[in-house]
Design a protein around this nucleic acid. Structure first.
Length: 574
RNA sequence: UACCCCAUGGUGUAAUGGUAGCACAAGUGGUUUUGGUCCACUUAGUCGAGGUUCGAAUCCUUGUGGGGUAGCCA
């Protein structure tokens, strides 16, 4: 999107710019309205508030793309705030990975880096204020008792016997809690709201608990920590957030969010707006399940290329542009969304098609001998780097008597519509020559070990001099010049559309064939010294990304996504 | 069973009381030195019942279906 002025927005890839009737999602509509009404003096401040207890996945990407993009579109700011209010689950390791992933996606929080733990002192003071107002109390009920007193979804709760302690006593006990006088679990601070509320979150919710646990940033300074519901709204308010965007499951927390800010009579009262989480078919997204995959070694780690984490997707070869495009296309509403992974795949292909260099690589090699080609001759042929972008130029490819082609590109008997290498027929070797297959050589077990053909010297470059139409074109590499490579073929991690639903464990739905490693692949010589992260299209096969495990002269490629394959569809139908 | 939210082709999403459109997926054909890309076309939708209105996907009532909520997690 391009900002025209403070009120009007158009998209570039849409040529009805003059009509300017592009629809916006409901959140942008609300914010636009607020800006038009000069609410918050027309300012927009959003925030992305991850808890540093895990790696970011594409669902988080939706949230931070939203927050950063909106800030950008409305000339505002987006804060990065680590919601580090529960020291038992959090660690610095995650802070680094989260910042890395957000930067990789192309967003910048500038100076606006915050931690909820920076506000512990302020938050403590706010709790004291609430106590002084008679709106919070120290409760000595145990976890089990609190649960019992809370009531159920259908029955109201009972008031805590400690609910009517004097303000003085509450203040004294709270100071004691902070001072470390009491063991964990012995007391909590609770907001005094309404034990009969139909919304359970309003039944005197805990706002502080005792944890004698070292915090990754504040160390041993504190042994009481604020709960999410208390810390989050106040952190938002302290930072002057105008629109606090979160996912749907927090909808029911909104009355509490507002209650706390109202009781404290804070000037800055951000508006919480909830949106739908992003879910993908054939994928699990919950942090718990992703941890399980890592811990039970179902994948190699958080950055396994099959994981929906940003670090996994980066390693797999997904680009930030393709992920953003996908998120934009997925949309934003209040309905539960389960998006087909095929849309994600479409978005990567779309981006990679435009930008990656074409190369030739043979993943399942079989030797081809051009019987009428001179033994020692080496030809240099021109190959176009990207037909979508002439500016990417061309490169030289060595050609010689012995080549490798894909095993599936040769058949002794051709099925209908098969136009690759078949005895007696012609096929084009891409950018090289038209060759005629003359037969094959088998070992004692009947396995084909070599294919023979003759070439037409007049067809250099792959042209057909006398205008005969050659339907098939196949890729190849010169055996003498080829570089051996390892290729890792990834498929979806699960073989059911919603691996999280159904009877058994989601692990029952793991796809046993989600990773296939091919160690004897041959790629064109220019790929000998690729560096990790480089992206390519292997012609006729798919998009590949040089893996972290690549060492000089020994490339390892990850398949990001295969090319669409209409031949596979034809074959499947039969 | 209480409260809250949601309901448009297979999937996702527009239409904000006035012609139900787009994308992905699926299918058919064309172009092609990648069975890729690109192009054209086809299939397919407003959860049900009432009501308001000249007119309802949109507003109201109600039913049904899906989701969320009973951490001293976020």
């Amino acid at each position: 999107m391009i900002r025209l002025n403070s009120k009007e927005y158009i998209t570039m890839d849409n040529n009805n710019t003059e009509t300017n009737n592009e629809s916006v999602d409901f959140i942008r509509a609300i914010i636009k309205e607020d800006v038009n009404n000069s609410k918050n003096n027309g300012k927009v401040v959003t925030r992305f508030p991850p808890e540093p207890n895990g790696y970011l996945h594409i669902g988080h990407a939706k949230a931070f793309c939203l927050n950063f993009s909106i800030a950008d579109e409305f000339n505002g700011k987006c804060h990065l705030r680590f919601d580090d209010t529960n020291p038992v689950r959090e660690d610095d390791e995650y802070i680094h990975s989260i910042m890395r992933d957000i930067k990789w996606m192309g967003f910048d929080w500038g100076d606006n880096l915050f931690y909820a733990s920076d506000y512990y002192e302020k938050l403590y003071d706010f709790a004291v204020q609430l106590i002084k107002k008679g709106k919070a109390f120290i409760c000595d009920l145990s976890v089990d008792e609190i649960k019992e007193y809370r009531g159920t979804l259908t029955e109201p709760g009972k008031e805590s016997p400690y609910r009517n302690r004097s303000i003085e006593e509450n203040l004294e006990l709270f100071a004691g809690m902070r001072n470390g006088d009491y063991p964990e679990g012995s007391r909590t601070v609770r907001a005094k709201i309404d034990m009969a509320s139909p919304n359970i979150h309003m039944r005197d919710p805990a706002i502080y608990r005792i944890k004698h646990v070292r915090h990754h940033r504040t160390g041993d300074e504190w042994c009481i920590y604020p709960m999410y519901d208390f810390a989050h709204c106040l952190s938002d308010s302290i930072e002057g957030i105008t629109h606090s965007l979160c996912s749907l499951e927090f909808e029911i927390h909104r009355p509490l969010y507002d209650w706390i800010l109202d009781e404290l009579e804070l000037e800055s009262h951000p508006q919480q707006i909830e949106f739908n989480r992003l879910n993908l078919t054939y994928t699990v997204m919950s942090k718990r399940k992703l941890i399980q995959l890592v811990e039970e070694k179902k994948v190699s780690g958080w950055d396994d290329p099959r994981m929906p984490t940003l670090s996994g997707m980066r390693r797999r070869g997904y680009t930030p542009a393709s992920i953003k495009e996908f998120i934009n296309r997925a949309g934003l509403t209040k309905r539960e969304q389960i998006i087909d992974v095929s849309l994600l795949e479409y978005c990567v292909r779309e981006d990679l098609n435009k930008h990656t260099t074409r190369v030739m690589g043979v993943l399942d090699p079989i030797k081809v001998v051009i019987t009428n080609y001179p033994d020692d001759k080496i030809d240099e042929l021109d190959a176009i780097n990207n037909p979508e972008d002439p500016e990417m130029g061309s490169r030289k490819l060595p050609f010689s008597k012995v080549l490798y082609i894909e095993r599936e590109d040769f058949r002794e008997e051709a099925p209908k519509k098969y136009f690759r290498m078949v005895p007696g027929r012609e096929v084009r070797l891409r950018y090289a020559y038209i060759v005629k297959c003359t037969g094959c050589v088998k070992d004692e077990n009947g396995n084909i070990i070599e294919v023979h053909c003759t070439y037409d010297p007049d067809s250099r470059g792959g042209t057909d001099p006398d205008g005969r139409r050659i339907k098939g074109t196949i890729h190849w590499v010169s055996a003498k010049h080829a570089v051996r490579a390892e290729v890792r073929l990834y498929d979806r991690l699960f073989n059911t559309r919603s691996p999280e639903s159904g009877k058994g464990s989601f692990l029952d739905n793991l796809n046993p064939d989600s990773l296939e490693i091919r160690r004897e692949c041959y790629v064109e010589p220019g790929l000998a010294n690729v560096s990790s992260g480089e992206l390519f299209q292997f012609e006729r096969i798919g998009y590949f990304c040089a893996d972290l495990d690549t060492t000089n002269g020994q490339p390892v490629f990850n398949r990001t996504v295969p090319l669409r394959d209409s031949w596979a569809k034809i074959e499947k139908k039969k």
